[in-house]
Design a protein around this nucleic acid. Structure first.
Lengths: 134, 134
DNA sequence: CCTTGACCTTACAGTTACTGGAAGGCCTAC
DNA sequence: GTAGGCCTTCCAGTAACTGTAAGGTCAAGG
């Protein structure tokens, strides 16, 4: 199967698939004309990568997950630990974003948003708030 | 004021301040020996940048915000619109992360996490789930 | 047989917002 | 005068692609 078909099948852009080959995540065969040739196994790996990346795992996480996936004797505890760590990072990011959200919503609510120059948002960014909340 | 002091004052690493000068966000003076010389105004700008970046605005957002900040005749509506857009992106990212969180928590809960090889997390990533939830 | 268009190839540059490191100048204190 | 702690510039690297250029291959149509 050519890269175009593999791309449609996996939902990953052809460029991304080539990149994954470059960094050693997959190693498709080659036909005589030099075109990449993807087997069912390759397609499964691509689908695996697509899901793992979609769930926010880094490329290096994916590399490990893929090797665990292929190692039929691995302990599920390893995978669970990685996923827990990843979940902790996600939770942290959500908290960070929520903090930003609260501060910014607060500023937006204070701002008239008309054609006058007074702007509590810029004042807040400049540090001119009373409670030092920003 | 030297870059070291400006760094402590603003909370931004010296490297970052140099980078901000490179990309034209600030233009500190220079003393005779070639050292950067930061005035109070520069420190205010750095503090502004530090807060804006801390609230997740991109560098290009910051460039615009800084120019709006310096334009005493600007309409607050412009700033409010930018901030609203930014808030929308934050909300979107939070949703994305929450979706990942739910899926991953679900998989973690299903996984025994012992030394046996059966691992619902890897199965989920491989696409072997019933409801197609992943 | 030739061309057209869709596909494929590689290689290199650009993205975001820094960060690290090397090589060297300057300044103060001992 | 030298040791240290600043400062300077420049170049490379990070994450995970994405864009673009220059060119090879293949199937269909005239």
């Amino acid at each position: 199967m050519n890269i175009g078909a593999a791309s449609i099948n996996s939902g990953l852009p052809a460029k991304t698939i080539r990149y994954y080959e470059d960094i050693g995540l997959i190693s498709p065969d080659r036909t005589d004309n030099g075109y990449r040739d993807f087997s069912e196994t390759h397609l499964h790996k691509l689908a695996f990568l697509s899901r793992a990346r979609g769930l926010g795992f880094t490329i290096e996480d994916c590399r490990i997950l893929l090797s665990l996936y292929e190692d039929t004797g691995r302990a599920s505890a390893d995978v669970k630990a990685m996923t827990r760590e990843h979940l902790a990072k996600i939770a942290y990011k959500i908290e960070e974003l929520k903090t930003m959200q609260i501060t910014l919503s607060d500023l937006v609510n204070k701002c008239n948003g008309d054609d006058r120059p007074e702007c509590p948002i810029l004042q807040g960014l400049a540090g001119g708030n009373q409670q030092g909340k920003i």
